[in-house]
């Protein structure tokens, strides 16, 4: 039986694998040092890349590891962002607390949406989430919610200052500080994802992806796992949304259109469906490509995205991560 998702990732990397400590350590060091060498704006962009990476990882947990499709993750990104913004703007909550809270609200929302949605097979779920992604901006603009969401205008919020001892001792700027926060959160989220995938739960998720009927007959409660995965996936995306709202200091309905869903989807596919760290590359890709594309011709960035997306499917269905894996194997063979 053909599975719904192409998974040509090296199995050793996903199941019962050991964390490649050498690479992780290298990644952490580079990531931590980077903001001290970058311009302020580049640091800010790096922060956005990491935020996207978290959201893409969330989507990937759903699609790459559980075989469900979502074209509506912009909705969860929006819920996370608005949760953070509303808590700060209306209730004066401490900014840092709102980040996990945005995730939790999304988990509940995702679980609840997943509950009926899990009855829908692949394509129909894609359709239902498409509907969700398309209709959410309109809901956010609605005049009935204007008191809460600020309507079309959105909400302005302000980031708290960098703790003074860091400014005094290290001269840390606002951009650097939030880069570090995003970096730590991202590492934490990736660590959770890694452990989740390599646990019993992760194997159940993947069993459902590869053969739902067999998984059921092995005693896996497929419905529960599917809606839980949907919840966890939304949780990740919600955390990313909340972080984004705070870092950008602004939320408005037009930041969360269907195009954002497309963007996250592109990041997932290009990074590698079913790859955890591919999400970082995916985030890098969706943030930087428009910059290059705009230099070639204004307004064409999505066309270039589209072409790359289609090429990826032909040339390297397992994305950037798959490509790297392939190269690694080749190099290994040479020696």
């Amino acid at each position: 039986m053909a599975t719904d998702v192409e998974t040509r990732v090296d199995p050793r990397l996903t199941v019962g694998a050991k964390m490649p400590y050498k690479w992780v350590a290298l990644f952490v060091i580079i990531g931590a040092v980077l903001p001290f060498f970058l311009q302020g704006y580049a640091t800010f962009q790096g922060t956005l890349i990491m935020i996207y990476a978290i959201a893409i990882l969330g989507l990937n947990l759903l699609t790459g590891f559980n075989g469900q499709f979502s074209l509506g993750h912009s909705a969860f990104y929006a819920v996370g962002a608005y949760t953070a913004a509303i808590l700060v703007y209306h209730l004066d909550w401490p900014v840092y607390v709102t980040i996990p809270f945005g995730g939790i609200v999304c988990f509940v929302a995702g679980f609840l949406f997943g509950l009926p949605a899990l009855r829908l097979e692949g394509l129909y779920l894609a359709l239902a989430t498409f509907a969700l992604g398309v209709s959410v901006p309109q809901i956010l603009k609605s005049s009935h919610l204007e008191g809460l969401t600020g309507g079309v205008q959105g909400l302005d919020i302000f980031r708290p200052k960098v703790p003074s001892f860091l400014v005094e001792n290290f001269g840390l700027t606002m951009d650097q500080w939030w880069y570090m926060i995003a970096f730590v959160i991202m590492l934490f989220m990736f660590w959770i994802a890694w452990n989740l995938i390599n646990s019993r739960t992760g194997r159940a998720m993947m069993a459902i992806r590869d053969n739902p009927i067999a998984a059921r007959s092995m005693g896996i409660n497929a419905s529960l796992y599917k809606s839980l995965t949907f919840g966890v996936s939304a949780f990740y995306t919600g955390i990313a949304g909340a972080l984004a709202a705070i870092v950008i200091e602004f939320v408005a309905p037009d930041s969360f259109t269907f195009q954002l869903s497309i963007l996250l989807f592109i990041g997932m596919v290009v990074g590698g469906t079913g790859s955890i760290w591919g999400a970082v590359f995916g985030g890098f890709f969706i943030l930087t490509v428009p910059n290059f594309a705009e230099e070639i011709s204004t307004g064409l960035s999505y066309a270039i995205f589209g072409i790359i997306l289609i090429l990826v499917i032909y040339v390297m269905p397992s994305g950037f991560a798959g490509l790297v894996n392939l190269l690694r194997m080749r190099v290994k063979k040479m020696f």
């Binding site: 270039i304 995205f305 589209g306």
Partner: peptide, 27 residues
């Protein structure tokens, strides 16, 4: 070339087409 490819590949290409047509029309 995608006739027997998994569902995800099809969805990816649909999304790719959305992006291409939308962007081209604007450009």
């Amino acid at each position: 070339p995608l006739h027997s490819a998994p569902v995800l590949s099809h969805i990816v290409v649909f999304i790719g087409l959305v992006a291409i047509f939308n962007s081209l029309a604007g450009a």
